[in-house]
Each structure stands twice: as structure tokens, then as C-alpha cells.
């Protein structure tokens, strides 16, 4: 099958400049490092990872809101990373992004109806009668009640706000949606409703999703493939079923799943053992100083237990295929005590 999106060796450097004492200082941060993956039509690809690991940046690069520093993005085989906004315009029918903060992406001075009208105008629907019909259809599609149409964004609840965003984006009839935390900060019931709605739309309209999320449970339930990101790199690619049956996995994924598992029990848990990935107040480990070897090793429990092998210190790990469709970027992908990790 031909992939709809192919990302090849994509990187993004951000620099922060500031002036002090008549000199200019810069901090640079590589938000995305040499990332490659492809997305197939009709797939739900999930991206999980640390906060600040470049998930949103990756999504923004795919919809041409952030210009990549290097690398290639192929949309249906066509390279798009160098297109200007105007040249990209026709492709916006293909790919759209739903942003992390639903309130920030709506204009507080416009009612919901005006938002939808604007989106439809951009989709070249000009006839007022057609606009009216389309609005009807869209609100039905995302199951919004018609009263909401006259309200302003700050009168909407979190769930409604997300639905308005979805409706607005579906007005352009995209094929691929990048969902940045579609269900964050919603309560159990509404989360369920939105997830069901998204899955229904996926079925009905045959969409492709790139689903960025922190909620591992939902991601495990809906996604066909999961990419795990840490500090701008993809560390593991987990296929849907049998994700951990082969007894392999990256240490970071292990930490993520352990934390999720412990957070989602009713017992009063002790989290001090997770300190490994989180730099302690005094340690001040910076990732930038670790250009040789595995960049994860200062946080890696496995590296310590197997006696700091030279391989980890000298050679950066490549992706290793440990079972079908399961790729791990680690020299020692075997989990010692698999019963610690759920699934």
C-alpha cells in the first residue's frame, strides 16, 4: 500500500535569541531529531511521549505551519516541506490539524455559526442556501445541538468546544487529521463520547488519524500503531496487538507504562523509583552533552543494571526489528522481568 504521508529524516531546530549587555545570546534546541515514519491510508497512528518532546512540532511541520530545518515530508508522494503557504493551500483539503488548546483556536469575538461559515467559505461554498445546509450537516455529524450555534466560545464547555473545532475542520473535508490531545482535560463521560465520535467519523468518512496523546489507555485501545517519542527522537514503534508479547521494548516505554499503571490503581503508590527519567534537582543532566552513544543512557535503568556496556556509550542505537512491525531503538531491547510491565 502507498503511504499517504512519508516523513524522512525530519529535523527541526528552534533558537531562542536574547540581548543582554549589548550582546546577543542564543539557545538552540533540537525539537525534532531525524525522524522518519510513514502513515498509511485509513490508519490511526498514535504518538505518545514526554511533554516537550516535539510531538506538536512534528504535527505542525506536517501541516506546513513550521518550516523543517532539514528532511523531507511527502504527501501522497509529493514533497511539501518547501512549499509556500499559498502553494500549500490546495493541499489543506488533504491534511488538517486540531490543536491542543481548543479555546485558543477559536476567535472569542465570533459565534460558532460564524466560525463554521468562515470555514465553509474557505472550502468554496458560497451559496447561502448551501452554507445553511452544510452547517446543518456538520452539526449533525459531530452531534452538536443547534442551540450552540449562536453561542460564543467562552460559553462552550470543553467537550462542545472540541466538537466545534472538529466541525470547523471537517468543513474542508480533509482526508488526514492530526489530532493534538483530542481528549485532554475532559472528564470520563465526555472523553468517552468524543473518542466514540472520532472513531465513528473515522469509519464513516474513511479518515486517517495521527493521534497525539498522553492518555496511554485510550491510545492502546484505538491506535493501530504507536510511536513513542523522547526528546525529539522516536524510540519505539509498537504495533497494535501483541505489542509486548515478544518480551522486548525500550526502557523509556517501560517507564511510561509503569507510571501509567501505578497512577491508575487505587492504592497509594510510591513514585520515587521513577526518578530515573526525571532529572533530580541537583543532577542537572543535559542531553546536549551526550552526542556520542545512546542519548537516553543517563536516564536508562537497563544501562545501569547490565553494567554500563561500551556499546551504549559509543554507538548510537539504530532501530532494531524485534518482531513483525515492532521496532525498538535500543541495543538491548529485551525486558528482564516482563511481569513489571503491563501487557
Amino acid at each position: 500500500m502507498q503511504p499517504v504521508i512519508e516523513v524522512q529524516n525530519l529535523s527541526k531546530n528552534f533558537t531562542i535569541r536574547y540581548r543582554e549587555d549589548w550582546r546577543v545570546y542564543t539557545y538552540s534546541k533540537q525539537a525534532v531529531r531525524n525522524v522518519s515514519f510513514s502513515v498509511f491510508p485509513g490508519e490511526i497512528l498514535a504518538i505518545v511521549g514526554e511533554s516537550g518532546s516535539g510531538k506538536t512540532t512534528l504535527g505542525k511541520m506536517m501541516v506546513n505551519l513550521v518550516r523543517p530545518s532539514s528532511g523531507q515530508i511527502l504527501l501522497n508522494g509529493q514533497p511539501v516541506q518547501r512549499l509556500s503557504q499559498r502553494r500549500f493551500q490546495p493541499l489543506r483539503h488533504l491534511i488538517q490539524m486540531v490543536f491542543q488548546n481548543p479555546y485558543a483556536s477559536l476567535n472569542p469575538m465570533m459565534t460558532v455559526r460564524e466560525h463554521l461559515e468562515e470555514a465553509l467559505r474557505l472550502a468554496d461554498v458560497t451559496d447561502p442556501h448551501a452554507i445553511e445546509q452544510e452547517i446543518q450537516q456538520l452539526t449533525q455529524l459531530v452531534k452538536l445541538s443547534p442551540q450552540v450555534l449562536t453561542e460564543y466560545p467562552d460559553q462552550l464547555s470543553g467537550g462542545e468546544c472540541r466538537r466545534v473545532n472538529l466541525a470547523r475542520i471537517l468543513a474542508r473535508r480533509p482526508r488526514i487529521l492530526i489530532l493534538d490531545e483530542p481528549v485532554a482535560s475532559l472528564d470520563f463521560a465526555i472523553k468517552q463520547i468524543i473518542v466514540d465520535l472520532l472513531l465513528e467519523l473515522h469509519q464513516k468518512l474513511g479518515l486517517t488519524y495521527i493521534w497525539i496523546s498522553h492518555d496511554l489507555e485510550i491510545v492502546q485501545a484505538v491506535a493501530h500503531r504507536i510511536l513513542v517519542m523522547f526528546d525529539g527522537e522516536i524510540l519505539e514503534e509498537i504495533p497494535r496487538d501483541g505489542s509486548r508479547r515478544d518480551g522486548c521494548g525500550h526502557p523509556y516505554t517501560e517507564i511510561l507504562f509503569t507510571a501509567a499503571h501505578r497512577l491508575h490503581t487505587w492504592e497509594q503508590e510510591d513514585f520515587s523509583t521513577l526518578g530515573a527519567v526525571l532529572p533530580q534537582p541537583t543532577a542537572g543532566t543535559t542531553m546536549a552533552s551526550r552526542e556520542r552513544g545512546c542519548r537516553f543512557r543517563s536516564f536508562c535503568q537497563r544501562y545501569r543494571t547490565i553494567g554500563r556496556p561500551k556499546l551504549c556509550r559509543e554507538t548510537p542505537p539504530r532501530f532494531k526489528t524485534v518482531s513483525q512491525n515492532h521496532l525498538v531503538r535500543c541495543h538491548f531491547p529485551w525486558i528482564e522481568n516482563p511481569e513489571v510491565t503491563p501487557k
Binding site: 514526554e50 482535560s185 507510571a259
Partner: peptide, 9 residues
């Protein structure tokens, strides 16, 4: 917006 390890932290 916090990942699970940060929630635990």
C-alpha cells in the same frame, strides 16, 4: 498536558 511520568512526579 502532563505525561504520565510527570503526573507521577
Amino acid at each position: 498536558g502532563l505525561d504520565v511520568t510527570l503526573q507521577a512526579a
